[in-house]
Every structure is written in structure tokens, then in C-alpha cells.
Design a protein around this nucleic acid. Structure first.
Lengths: 209, 209
DNA sequence: CCTTGACACGGAGGGACCCTCCGCTACGCT
DNA sequence: AGCGTAGCGGAGGGTCCCTCCGTGTCAAGG
């Protein structure tokens, strides 16, 4: 895990491989053609974001998907919405990981989870930028996602605190943001990020004097 | 702007206040009108970057400065070049600060400097992005600046290591990048950044078991 | 003071994107 | 098979990037 992965599809929380489960929590069943187009856009977006980062032109994505730009915008009114749709599954997986790790000792579990989170975000600077920021527009599209992540990590952190392995004043929000900030560092050397992250995480265990 | 500090000029390393000293290390004496325009652009850019971040439209800057877009591009062929010209003075000041701090105890000195660096970068996400990244184009325009910073910090770090207050495996580059990464976190609450930075810096002092 | 070469100015213009709007297409229900 | 409407696509207006080149301005020598 020390090094941030390949360039393609695969990433930390083994992605769900398919895009079919999309739609989800919405009430409306989409019309056949609509669903087809939505999936085409999603697939094209996933590829494009992976290849060129979050700033890929939306028009390019539409072109790649073979749909009109208007269609893309109807399904995903903003770039953020599209990003979210592309990555929710993976973030959810990350949250689920937290549960499994609870078998380990408190600190190793927490550390492993945070490192995994970091490694994932390294491969998706795109996501990191949007997922973790408060500021910004009224409704943070990623809010739900983020809360999920927080809910998942909280137990791990609390457990480590209870075991006296992590300073009691550490807040999960701060920790997650820290990991995100470090993951977003632009550095051609993957090991450097791993070193930096490890060092910063040790700050969680530091005790005064 | 959403972040710490005032909105205007002032920032961590008391900025040199004026833009007159610009030009510098170049051989050619500029023509009178050229210098005048260069300064106008620089001033407008400083304001604009402060108000709207590094992504401010270059055309807007030219408009604000009351010069043609072509003029702006002749003096500063890239956005990076402009950023650098705007901020070199401040970064140099930051480097100079390191010297003064050496009067303090090793750890407090190092911590103070890094916190100051962080506070400064928070006000200039713009800068942080460009200054600290390796990746990217052939010639990093900021390379000189960055080296200056590293040269300034090195003694502080070494001293703290020698005093046994900082783990010996900490590298300055990593530390500076870490500070940069944390400073770039988007968060409406300035205190949060400070907390996170403090926690991460404690990682420097953590000693195994 | 005037000439004149070179330096510098400004903005038009082509390309890329963003996002909206609306006439047309084609689903799918009856 | 007919029809109401969800959904499609792309033209179009706006912004920005960056280049190129005709015109304006400086300053050194006559």
C-alpha cells in the first residue's frame, strides 16, 4: 500500500467493477433510453476522469459517450454531481472497510484505515478536492458521502482513544481532512506521500512532554 | 479569501509593501513605458489574486491594470510567471525569518517557522499549489524560490534533530510539503487548519514505542 | 529639435469550454 | 396505433486562453 497504485480502474477499495447499480435512492424509474444514456455518460466520465483528472472537459465526456452535451447536463447538472455519481460506490466501499478492520488492534486498525483512505485519495485528487471541502456552495453534493465516511471512521478513532493510543483531542473531521490534504500533494514520488502521511499520523499518537 | 487573515495586502511575512523593487536579476533595463505597465500589471495581479484566488482570469487582470492583454502576456508569458513575480518578495521574507528564529530553542524555533509558513500559505493557496509541486512542466518557475525556502529551513530542522527533539528520519522536503498540503485544505474555519497543522507537526516529535 | 529603428502596445480573432434553451424524437401507456 | 411527455441534441451566447501583427512610443544619434 506504500505506493499509490496503477493509473487505471483498480484502486484501494476494489471498485464495484460495474456501473449498473447506479440510479439508486431516486424515486423515478428512468425511461429506457434515459438509463442507457446515463450509463454511457457515467462510463465515459469514469474513463475520462481517470485519464485526465477532474478537470476534463464535460463536452469531451459527452462526445466520448456519444451523447449530446444537453443530455449530460440533464443527468448531471454540475461537474460535482457527475464526480459523485462516478465515485459513490468506491467511497461506500471505503466506509465498509472500516467495519472489517475493527478486528485488528485499535491503533493498527485506525492507521490501516487512514492509510487506505489516503492511498485511495491519492489516485483520485479529483475526488479529494470535492469530497472533503466544507466551504463552497449551499449544498455540498458530497455531504452524504462524507458523512458516511465520518460515521465509519468514528468508531475506529474512539476505540484507539479509549485504548490510550491516540491523543484525546483528536477529532475525526480534522484527521480525515489532514489525510485528504496530504493525499492531494502533487508529487511525482509516491513513496514521499506515504512517508509524509505516516509522519503526520504519528502526530495522533504524540503525547505532551 | 474565505480563510484566515485579513483580506488585503498584509500577510504572515510582512510583505514588502511596494512593488518597485521588481525587475531585479534581469539584464535589460526596461523602457520607461514598459516598466510602468509592468508595475501596473503586477499591482493589479496582486489585488486580483488576493481577492479571487489564483484562477482569476488573466484578461480581468489586464483590464484591471488598464493595459491590453497582449502587454500582460509579453511581460508574463504564463500565469505561473505572474504568480512568481507577485510573490517572490514575500517568500524571500519567509526565508529570512528562519534566520531570526534561530535565537529560540530548537523545537520552538522550527515549529514557529513552520506555523508561519503554514499561515502564509493558507492565505495564498494560489502560491502553495505552484510553489511546492515537483511534477509538471520541464522548468518549474518557482524552483529558485523553493530552494531558497529549503535552504532557510534546513538549519532549523537539523538543529532540532541534533537536540533530539525531532525524529532523525524527518526530511525537510517532506515536512514543507506536508505543511503545504495542510495549508491548502479548503475549510472555512481557520482554527481547524491550525489544529490540524499542530497535530501533524507533533508527528515530527513522535518517537517509536 | 527631428529622425528613425527598435521596443512595446493593444486588441482582434480563432479555439476551447461552459451552460442554457428549445424544437424534435421516440418511449411506453392505454 | 395514437398521444402526451420525458428525454435528446446541438445551436448559441458568454468567458477565457493565447497568438499575431499593425500601430504607437521611446530614446539615441544627427
Amino acid at each position: 500500500m506504500n505506493s499509490p497504485m496503477s493509473a487505471t480502474e483498480s484502486s484501494a477499495p476494489s471498485a464495484p467493477t460495474e456501473t449498473l447499480n447506479t440510479e439508486e435512492r431516486a424515486g423515478k424509474p428512468l425511461r429506457a433510453d434515459a438509463k442507457r444514456n446515463r450509463d454511457k455518460v457515467l462510463a465515459a466520465a469514469r474513463e475520462a476522469f481517470t485519464e485526465n483528472g477532474a478537470s476534463t472537459s464535460l463536452e469531451a465526456i459527452a462526445r466520448r459517450a456519444g451523447v449530446g452535451i444537453g443530455t449530460l447536463y440533464r443527468h448531471f447538472p454540475t461537474r460535482q454531481a457527475l464526480l459523485e455519481a462516478v465515485y459513490v460506490d468506491e467511497v461506500e466501499q471505503l466506509a465498509r472497510d472500516a467495519g472489517e478492520l475493527s478486528a485488528m488492534e485499535p491503533w493498527p486498525a485506525l492507521e490501516a484505515w487512514l492509510v487506505r483512505l489516503g492511498a485511495y485519495l491519492v489516485t483520485k485528487h479529483a475526488l479529494a478536492g470535492e469530497l472533503l471541502n466544507y466551504v463552497d456552495t449551499n449544498a455540498n453534493v458530497f455531504a452524504a458521502c462524507r458523512d458516511l465516511l465520518y460515521a465509519a471512521g468514528e468508531p475506529l478513532l474512539e476505540r484507539a482513544k479509549a485504548a490510550g493510543e491516540v491523543r484525546p483531542d483528536a477529532e475525526l473531521q480534522d484527521v480525515v481532512q489532514m489525510v485528504g490534504g496530504i493525499a492531494k500533494i502533487q508529487n511525482s514520488d509516491p513513496d514521499a506521500i506515504a512517508r509524509i502521511l505516516a509522519m503526520a499520523l504519528d502526530g495522533l499518537r504524540y503525547k505532551k512532554a
